[in-house]
Design a binder for these strands. Structure first.
Lengths: 252, 252
DNA sequence: GTGTTTATCGTCAAGCAGACGACTATGATC
DNA sequence: GATCATAGTCGTCTGCTTGACGATAAACAC
């Protein structure tokens, strides 16, 4: 590949973000309303162009901060922040995915604790947390029995891939704690798994599993009754990132 | 993001390939020697520019065919081809990864059965299968006690990521069969796992596991003695792609 | 035949998961 | 203040899977 600028076609490179959180027992994704054509007025994933001097991860972290104010969790700093987990998801480069020009989008997956409603450019009506079911059902009806237009571009595919990544990754890693506040109870963690997988888990077996896996959870000593019922121990995420044996996702 | 060509910097987009195979009980990757600067004369992963009208997967499949003659296995055709498995790996876009210009590379991972030595542009000395250990040891010595220069660009990182993906993916999928010819024995499949993981597996437990997992292997009825010893049954890859429970990689 | 190699079947104990009983400690309700 | 509902925590039991390993089978080399 000789260095000849005419030898390769120019591309625009963007990052798109699948930002997931758990709200009211449902897995939700951040969606923004498009202000310009194409797909004007339709919902889309947040994202933007990669700058000339920026790494892909930097660009994703910048977009995440712009859309949500979240900072990215730095693994080198021990677990006691409110930062989000951010990882590269996949890259989408169909020649026709953007009608304007050739755009390659490097999608990233972010997992965040429950947050206040987002602001996109200060306008709340242009950004929202929406249940992923709602965003993915094509041509169906949202919770207000209002017809839902499919996401712009190939963002439905990107979102579906991100959700699948999150669903599979919490099986064998401690990533589910990224959906929780810095201190959380076993029950809260269980409700994260239930929301992401869309299943009900046995509280007793779940408790045995997560407290019995070394390095997954470390007790902080405190307790809370914020979920009602008997006070529950508070935990922080332990250092372990890989769960072995994994948490088994129930069939069907 | 308004459509303003001056609003975004132009990028070159390439695909790079981590092509893995198992040769002589070792996990090997395809490496090509660079003919031009930068990194002239150094080994690198095969790859090239994505064309203007080409999808990323198409570009990767084209490069794979150009370098190895391999066609990509089409999952819609039932398992009886000699095609390779191809999947997107990750995207690398550090602003300084290519000293010439801003290049974003979408790396792909290909798994192939053992092949005749490759030809890159017809010149055998410019392409070879090399054990991944050899390609990844920085500044060490190859099997000819010849000093080995690190791979060009960030290709050592890409290769390491591809190897790790392959190592983890054969745990919970039937992907190891992509390293095997269309018909293979349990022992041959076991030697694939041993080469990829770099461990020794108990032949009896391995046999029980793979033959006991529904949909993993289907017997063809034939037998072979090409490995010596008692004749072994021949199998084809079954339709199952996900192994549940997974094949457990021994610790350490 | 004897030894070597590889394949294949079987046995046993330890560990883990799923189902589920029992008890505890809160707040809410009457 | 007794009762109820809610959520958390500890145990038990059973079945399945794994890892370690003995034993047998069928080829080839000498």
């Amino acid at each position: 590949m000789p260095y000849d600028p005419s030898a390769f076609p120019p591309f625009a490179v963007t990052v798109d973000l699948v930002v997931l959180t758990v709200r009211r027992h449902a897995l939700c994704a951040l969606a923004v309303r498009r202000g310009e054509p194409p797909f004007q007025g339709r919902w889309a994933l947040p994202g933007g162009f990669v700058r000339a001097d920026e790494d892909l991860a930097q660009a994703a972290a910048r977009e995440l901060a712009e859309e949500t104010g979240l900072r990215v969790h730095d693994p080198s700093v021990p677990a006691q922040d409110n930062g989000a987990h951010l990882e590269q998801l996949a890259t989408y480069g169909d020649p026709k995915r953007d009608p304007r020009m050739r755009v390659v989008s490097v999608a990233h997956l972010a997992l965040a604790p429950d947050l206040p409603p987002p602001r996109a450019g200060g306008d709340a009506s242009n950004a929202r947390w929406a249940p992923v079911e709602e965003l993915l059902q094509q041509g169906g009806y949202g919770r207000d029995t209002e017809p839902v237009a499919p996401l712009a571009f190939d963002h439905a595919q990107i979102l579906a891939d991100g959700v699948e990544r999150a669903r599979s990754k919490i099986e064998y890693s401690s990533l589910a704690t990224a959906f929780c506040p810095p201190e959380f109870t076993v029950g809260e963690l269980r409700r994260v798994y239930e929301a992401v997988w869309g299943v009900a888990l046995d509280p007793r077996n779940f408790h045995r599993k997560v407290t019995g896996t070394p390095g997954f959870l470390v007790p902080t000593g405190g307790t809370t009754t914020r979920q009602g019922g008997r006070p529950a121990q508070l935990f922080r995420a332990g250092g372990a990132t890989l769960l072995n044996p994994p948490m088994l996702r129930p069939e069907v």
